[in-house]
Simulated assay, not measured.
Amino acid sequence: MVKNAENIIVGISIGDLNGIGSEVVLKTFEDSRMLEMCTPVIFANVKMLTFIKKTFQSTSLLHGIDELDQLVHGKVNVLNVWKEGVELNLGKSDVKAGEYAIKSFVAATTALKEGGIDVLVTAPINKSNIQSEEFAFPGHTDYLDQELEGNALMLMVQDNLRVGLLTDHIPLSEVASHLTEELIVRKIETIKQSLIQDFSINKPKIAVLGLNPHCGDGGVIGNEENLVLKPVLKKIFDKGTLVFGPFSADGFFGSNQYEKYDAIIATYHDQGLIPFKTLSFGKGVNYTAGLNKIRTSPDHGTAYEIAGKGIADFNSFKEAVYLAIDVFHSRNQYAEISKKPLRIKEKQL
């Protein structure tokens, strides 16, 4: 069944309560036109969010519910994941804030798995204060990779600029040892399939960046390009995937080479995210490709320094909602097309 736009249920995990997450979420849905595109449900506590919105005079009208079957289309629904009061320390990191961020996120993920929501948009967390015996993951993506089917890949998106990562949240000193043939093949296949089913690009072109300065300068600066990247990329290309590289990372973005490709894969976190965030102008989205469910997030953090001041830019979060909805539609279209048998028109004599 194809859903009407307003009936697409967007689940939202609230993130760190002491950061700007609540502010950007509420600001996004002050525009009533957003409620024509989807039905939001925030996993938090309605009394707490009502208090927070007063700190920056938000005009969002909140509708508290205790079960997902109580949600109302055309309203900003808040599912009460907890009932107790929470002491807020806006602008400061504390363990309690991390604990409630994870309560929200785990509840939203469960709803996503069970079909109670159609897509998930996560507000920023603090990767330090969320750690506990019950939640020992570096962040959202790693937990989703465990809980959902598929292979998670961090894909940063802003319009036609898409930057994926071969390795993400690992120390820089460990990157080279992680660049195995198995990893490269799996990540490229994941991003290729995502471009086809999530972004409706039938024959995607993918660029891969080298690890070392100047791609190793023929082995003078490093051999990972010659020993690993080039042979693997050739194998993948010979099997029909339009993958190119490795390219020297320093000049790739400055020369606008990135505009020729549907996606760029960086070998490590900062190699991809520094140019992406420079070019995306605060409208970038973190999309978790490769999973059987849809999750997006803004490309910024908790921004404690401006929390509660009412000056947070909500554009990245709004774009995260837009992208989640767009991918939902693209996946439905892809599923419908995949079901239809290929019809070959008989040649008329």
Rank of each mutant, 00 (worst) to 15 (best):
E114T: 15
L71Q: 11
I117T: 04
V119F: 06
H140I: 05
M154L: 04
A111I: 01
H73I: 14
L166P: 13
L79T: 02
L165F: 15
H169F: 01
E99V: 05
V76W: 08
G116V: 00
L155S: 05
T141D: 09
S132T: 13
L79F: 14
K75Q: 12
L112T: 04
G115L: 03
L120H: 10
G74W: 06
Y100F: 15
Q146N: 10
N160R: 11
S93G: 10
E84P: 08
I170E: 03
G85T: 14
K75V: 01
S104W: 00
H73Y: 08
Q131C: 04
E147Y: 04
L148F: 11
W82S: 01
A107R: 12
F135N: 08
K96V: 15
L79V: 01
G85R: 10
L112N: 03
P138C: 04
T110F: 07
D168H: 11
D145Y: 06
K127E: 08
S104I: 00
N160K: 14
F137L: 00
K83L: 04
N77P: 09
A136S: 15
R162E: 12
L165C: 09
V86E: 07
E149Q: 13
L166H: 12
V72S: 12
E84T: 08
V72F: 09
I130R: 06
L112Q: 02
V72D: 12
E133N: 13
E87I: 14
N80G: 01
E149G: 14
D168S: 15
L165D: 10
Q131R: 15
E114R: 12
Q158I: 06
L165M: 15
L153K: 07
L90Q: 11
L120E: 07
W82N: 00
N89I: 13
E147N: 04
N89A: 13
E147K: 14
A108N: 02
K96P: 01
G115C: 03
G74I: 05
K113M: 11
D168K: 07
V78L: 09
L148D: 10
F135P: 14
G91T: 05
G116T: 00
T109C: 13
Y143D: 03
Y100D: 03
L71S: 02
G164N: 10
S128W: 08
E84A: 09
L153M: 11
L144Y: 02
T167F: 05
S132W: 07
K75D: 04
